[in-house]
Design a binder for these strands. Structure first.
Lengths: 144, 144
DNA sequence: GTGGGTGCAAACTGTTTGCACATCT
DNA sequence: AGATGTGCAAACAGTTTGCACCCAC
């Protein structure tokens, strides 16, 4: 979904588009590496020195609640965020820590369906293993 | 997998089966509700007053590392643990907080396979929504 | 002027760590 | 005795909260 479309959605809901919010949304769009809150904060505070961590937390929570972005909880110690909300899997490499988007066809469970009488609202299909890059390099190649 | 089989595995790997470890493993077997560390600790410290949180953490990490139990990271704020290691999905009710086991057939991705050149080692298929119990009760029925 | 948004710092929570003591072989 | 496991308390990291200030309508 394009940036403009998400911004339109915000306006439709009467949510103010502040500089900080725009910055976070744009950053997520440009960074497909599923950044952590700290990474978002560090990058943006270079441009907006007065930016506060609390604002980043507030903004991400707001976007998540309104379905503009997705939270990734594949690692228990910190949250990551994904601009893409179309259904897809996430692959975490336990060696280098990178998280890859993976498109998988033919999943038996889909959003808005039912399973065992429970209503499905959100899917978080996580996969953990060793990524192709680490497999090729053999050694313990570090993160990007 | 039966308790005895897991204990045998531990012994095969030369890992000592202490009272504390046995207690944690047995508790997980008997409690299918995917307890948190705190829940495990609270329950067991009633029986073993000297038990330490650190031991519970150590033990769970040990069991997880040796593939006897499974960590659930569907909630970002705390870890939960599951005695069942056979592949299955987890459903989190965002209203009452309960986590259900869900058996799903026909998933395109399986353990030990490959996806986009990455080697799959572990699957964590999480589903979030409203559970059948909460749907029936309509209101905001609390957790068990 | 009012309501919502931001920034700062303190508080909180789950988890990890360091170290002394205990336990098993 | 030596190695491994346990318990306690302090440290840590990510997140949340309370409150004063600021800005857009």
């Amino acid at each position: 979904m394009a940036l403009e479309e998400k911004i339109t959605r915000l306006k439709e809901k009467g949510i103010l588009l502040t500089i900080q919010r725009y910055a976070v949304l744009e950053f997520l769009q440009d960074n497909g590496l599923h950044p952590t809150v700290e990474e978002i904060f560090q990058s943006l505070s270079g441009i907006y020195p007065a930016l506060s961590r609390a604002t980043v937390y507030n903004t991400l929570e707001l976007f998540k609640r309104h379905g503009l972005i997705q939270e990734i909880t594949i690692e228990r110690d910190k949250a990551r965020y994904d601009y893409r909300i179309e259904p897809h899997h996430h692959f975490l490499c336990r060696q280098c820590g990178r998280i890859y988007d993976v498109d998988v066809e033919g999943c038996p469970i889909e959003k808005e369906e039912w399973v065992d009488g429970h209503k499905v609202e959100e899917l978080r299909p996580y996969i953990i293993g060793i990524c192709s890059k680490c497999l090729k390099e053999g050694g313990d190649a570090g993160a990007p």
